[in-house]
Structure formats: structure tokens, C-alpha cells
């Protein structure tokens, strides 16, 4: 589903966010992306839907050479992916319902379809009762769940989640992770960048660890901290 080959990313201000990164993610995989703050997790995800362009290297998503993709083709790429942004990116002047519906409207979906899918997505994240509220009237966790509903509503083949549980309490976190698992079981590839140790350690999925823009480990059933279980002390 995702193939990243020797990708480096240097921002215009000179920051080297990714350094010769190579990564393969198969169809239907569930992958955690971990690492300290500022190691390039968000940058890596942004490359996949071409919000950022790599300085060098090749990126293929669902058979599409993203690094070479023409500007006019970007919308089509993004419609096949769902993205939960680290900063949510909700529209303040639209209600929860409208924010989710919006992601379908831009794809030209029929309004009948929108009327059917939006309540489903809101129900999945447990926000049906707040569908008429505006983001400003929601808690951080509720905004996050709105963002997740929007990412899901188009039934994407690939779901990219940047810190999707950052603002959720433990029970919400569990619910959302179970939701992501269920979606994954239906065949959607899921990539989650996270700082949530409990989630990573409980789920025992593939863990890709970034450090200073480089992939340092890639474990099939990993933990949040490298070498956990070999007596290493946990902190923070």
C-alpha cells in the first residue's frame, strides 16, 4: 500500500526532518509510528498525501507515485485516503455534522449518500448527540472524534492518523483504538503516529520508530519503548 524509498526531506528553513527513510507498508497492515517529538512523524505522514514534497526519494501510495504526482491529480489521491490531523483542522463556522459531510461534498457525493453516511460515522465515534454543535463548543476529545469521523466517512483504503488519541481520556482512547482495529479488520490500511505508550504496548502491533528523521527500528510486534521486557526502566 505504501512504499517509501530513500526519502529525505529538508524544509526550506534548513531543518532536515527526514533522512534517507525507507519503509514498506502492505495492504491491510496496522502500523504505529513512534518517536520523540520533532523526529519527523507528522512530516512522514504529510508526504503520503502530498502536503509536503520530499527533497529526494520515491513515494508510492496505492500504486501512485506521489512524489511525481501532478498538481491536478492530488485531489483524487486525497479522496482515497482518510487523514486525522494532529491539529484536527475542523472548520469553526461549520457544525460537527457539516464538518463531516464536507469531506463527502468535496468528492461530489450525492446528498442521499451523505445523509446516510454522516450519521453512521458520527455514531461510530459516539458523537451523534452533538452533531449540531460547532467545534468551538466541543471539548478537545470531541473535536478529535469529529476529525476521526471525517477521516472515516469516505471509507478510505488508507487511514493516516496523526496522534488520534492525544486529547482523549483512557476510555475514549480504548474506544477509538478499537474502532481503528475494526476498520483495519475490514481491510483498511491504518498508520498511527502516536505518543501513547499504553495503546502501543497493549495492542502489540508493528511499531516503526523514528529518531532524528531516521528509522531506527521496525518491529513486527513491538512496544513503545525499545527493548521493553528486557528490564529497561520506563519514564514519562
Amino acid at each position: 500500500m505504501i512504499s517509501i524509498r530513500s526519502v529525505s526531506l529538508i524544509y526550506p528553513n534548513g531543518v532536515r526532518a527526514l533522512d534517507n527513510v525507507s519503509l514498506e507498508i502492505g495492504k491491510g497492515d496496522f502500523v504505529f509510528l513512534v518517536g520523540h517529538s520533532g523526529t519527523g512523524k507528522s512530516s512522514l505522514l504529510r508526504l503520503l498525501y502530498k502536503e509536503t514534497v520530499p527533497t529526494s526519494g520515491e513515494i508510492t501510495v496505492d500504486g501512485i507515485r506521489v512524489d511525481r504526482l501532478k498538481r491536478g491529480r492530488i485531489p483524487a489521491l486525497r479522496r482515497h485516503l482518510g487523514v486525522v490531523f494532529q491539529d484536527f483542522k475542523l472548520l469553526a463556522e461549520k457544525t460537527v455534522w457539516e464538518n463531516v459531510a464536507f469531506a463527502m461534498q468535496v468528492t461530489g457525493a450525492h446528498s442521499k449518500e451523505i445523509m446516510r453516511e454522516v450519521p453512521r460515522a458520527l455514531d461510530l465515534v459516539g458523537l451523534s448527540h452533538k452533531s449540531r454543535m460547532f467545534p468551538g463548543e466541543l471539548s478537545g476529545g470531541e473535536q478529535q472524534r469529529t476529525a476521526i469521523a471525517r477521516a472515516l466517512v469516505n471509507h478510505p483504503k488508507l487511514l493516516l492518523c496523526d496522534e488520534p488519541t492525544g486529547n482523549l481520556d483512557p476510555s475514549n482512547t480504548t474506544e477509538i483504538m478499537e474502532l481503528l482495529l475494526r476498520i483495519n479488520l475490514k481491510g483498511t490500511t491504518v498508520v498511527v503516529a502516536t505518543h501513547n505508550q499504553a495503546v502501543v504496548d497493549r495492542m502489540r502491533r508493528r511499531v516503526v520508530r523514528l529518531e532524528d528523521g531516521k528509522i531506527v527500528t521496525d518491529e513486527e510486534r513491538g512496544y513503545y519503548y525499545l527493548g521493553l521486557g528486557q528490564g529497561q526502566v520506563l519514564s514519562g
Partner: peptide, 16 residues
């Protein structure tokens, strides 16, 4: 502009 950039991120075409 924020709304437009979000539209673009969720896959809206220029025409839309």
C-alpha cells in the same frame, strides 16, 4: 484561506 486549505486537504478539486 484556512477553509480552502482544509478543503484541499480532504480532496476538493480546484474547480470545486
Amino acid at each position: 484561506r484556512r477553509e480552502i486549505s482544509i478543503m484541499q486537504l480532504v480532496g476538493a478539486t480546484h474547480m470545486y
